[in-house]
Design a protein around this nucleic acid. Sequence first.
DNA 1: GTCTATAGCGGGATAGAC
DNA 2: GTCTATCCCGCTATAGAC
Lengths: 182, 182
Amino acid sequence: MIKKDTETEEVIKQAAKRLFFVEGRFNATTQEIADAAGVNRTLLNYYFRSRNKLFDLVLLDARMHFKKKMKFVFQSDLSFREKVEQFIGIYLSEAIAYPYLETYMVARMNEKLEKNEFDQEHEEHAHNDINKFFEVIKKEMDKGTITRMNPVHFVWNLVSLLSFPIVMKPMYKRLMNLSDEE
Amino acid sequence: MIKKDTETEEVIKQAAKRLFFVEGRFNATTQEIADAAGVNRTLLNYYFRSRNKLFDLVLLDARMHFKKKMKFVFQSDLSFREKVEQFIGIYLSEAIAYPYLETYMVARMNEKLEKNEFDQEHEEHAHNDINKFFEVIKKEMDKGTITRMNPVHFVWNLVSLLSFPIVMKPMYKRLMNLSDEE
DNA sequence: GTCTATAGCGGGATAGAC
DNA sequence: GTCTATCCCGCTATAGAC
């Protein structure tokens, strides 16, 4: 059956996303992805040229998606407190929807660093976005709303508390007797 | 050259440890490990029967090592505050010596969960140790030294703040312009 | 655009000589 | 205990028919 252009492509990407970020199957083979998508394995090559390209694309997609949401919050005219609350809200809902995303990013990044395949391309944008956020925090400290500290540390602490439980869940769920109460 | 019994075995294990936990090369092949150890590839099979067995063994070793150190602290007669400080100290020095250990554990664990290969064996011991720690914390709350809360959450927060930076370092080092100040 | 068939390689594991 | 040679499998990628 002939599908509308790029439809199959999307199906494959969604399947890959689910495998990687929802189920945590980091070393999924092309066959497994194809099965999950309900398509023939060779179509992955047809659409994405290689396994690695697909991996990169899916990861990039996820980052863009998250960034767009965040940008929206920070460019709004909410109060600082509201912005942070929004940030937390989005962060958590994303993390619940894609519990393995962060772990996957770390794993992939290590792989790349090993092979010196790291691409600077999208790095500068990230720097800009984050630096803007730092500026906002600094202003807030000048106002005395939050304790003065290195803005880097502020974000760091925030993200630590939010993200760690997600990353470590599969592990500590076993070690302690936890339900999903956190 | 014939080496003293189990010496080569140790060399291989050390090499694997370094690759996994220090360099973060999670998908290292048997060949790479052998090269790093300066031995023939087939010796890995000779000593450990299979790649997976080696992986498991190295991981188990690391866990034991950490546990032993921790046990020593908790069985001492230090004050609660001192115990926590010791805990933090050990945790950080371990994390600096083996920056990828935690990430590796999470990655391996996901792999195992995928394949339902999870072994309960060493789980009960871990439960016991952690439950003891929980008891200590509870007593401390009764004394009013620390805010009353679920002990699980106390440990959780502590470990979050300690561990997250280590796990995420390779990632955020790139995103922000960080040295190793943390 | 989708499939079948096949090439080709890289990796894990084992046999057997030394 | 260590090495060489070899087997075998799983996976990616591509050629070519439909």
